[in-house]
Design a protein around this nucleic acid. Structure first.
Lengths: 161, 161
DNA sequence: GGCCGCTTACTCGGATATCGAATGTCCGAGTTACTTAGG
DNA sequence: CCTAAGTAACTCGGACATTCGATATCCGAGTAAGCGGCC
């Protein structure tokens, strides 16, 4: 069980767009080239971000993607849910109702949710809260604290130095 | 991204063994039948639990699996790690080092960990802590609070009423 | 010179292959319990 | 009757298919910019 690499690609791309500063749209090919990613596959992830309202897409020549909101208004959870979907990490198949045990439980015996599902749900809630508590602006700030020149590296990588 | 169904199967099986009470080994076929599961695939998950020290296997006729420790000494995290492995949910591919941006960073510029990885790691840590905070005994207690007769249902499903 | 329509090139968006992991199945090695013959 | 070896059945354990989702790719619809002709 692991998150797809689309999440990593999406976060780095959003940060790069922020470091570029201007609101100019950037095409997928360029966003992919700066990190040696598959442009077509990155495009798929960016489309998910557009659907989620994190990016705006500009069609036609000189088009591309631009940030739809400031990083302060985007949490890590927003990105993860946009890319991976909002399905729960643990999907309860209700196996307690099946087989010779399930048959023995009288009607109404399953009115309360499955305790296993509840326990897994508590852990997932903690995960989501921790993700929601961190905005992309926080991540950017931490990256700049580690390497203050990261913004210039990014602009240089896009050929704008 | 979702957890495999092996986790659900393993937790329910461990709880069922506890509700049976006696330390008698139970074969895979019976453990699977009570919830209409694939016996061979459940067997694979149970082998993981044996490797992790949560179950003991008894070979030969009248053999099967039995609990290796009381439920109080088994956390939900133990089960998840035993079944799914201890790989991190988010695997950082270090794409920051690749492409035209990565080439522009001078040597030593990546001494600090990737901020994206750190942020995802914080969330995963919260998830693991929430799982570790819940023992299987807690889950059993919650299930019994919902349906006090669950133990008798289980014993009946195994043909021991 | 200014304006309008056309062409062209570029971009997104979704439909289409490919790959790997999770899921599911099968058979052999090993062990235990039972049987049965002997003392 | 008790014992002990032989037999047979049962179980785990791992090797072998299959299915599904993630990954990667490609091509068409649509749009904006640039160009050329016309007023």
């Amino acid at each position: 069980m692991r998150t797809g690499k689309g999440v990593e690609w999406a976060v780095h791309t959003l940060l790069n767009l922020a470091w570029l500063g201007d609101g100019e749209p950037v095409p997928t090919a360029r966003l992919a080239a700066v990190h040696d990613l598959s442009a077509s596959y990155l495009n798929k992830q960016l489309q998910q971000l557009v659907k989620a309202g994190l990016l705006e897409s500009v069609p036609g020549a000189r088009g591309g993607f631009r940030l739809a909101r400031p990083l302060e208004a985007v949490s890590m959870l927003d990105v993860v849910l946009a890319v991976e979907g909002d399905d729960p990490l643990f999907r309860c198949a209700e196996i307690r109702r099946c087989g010779t045990i399930g048959e023995r439980v009288p009607a109404g015996g399953f009115s309360r949710p499955c305790a296993v599902n509840t326990a897994m749900g508590r852990a997932e809630l903690a995960w989501r809260k921790a993700l929601a508590a961190q905005s992309l602006a926080d991540v950017r700030a931490e990256a700049e604290a580690h390497a203050p020149a990261v913004g210039s590296y990014v602009r240089g990588g896009f050929g704008r130095d």
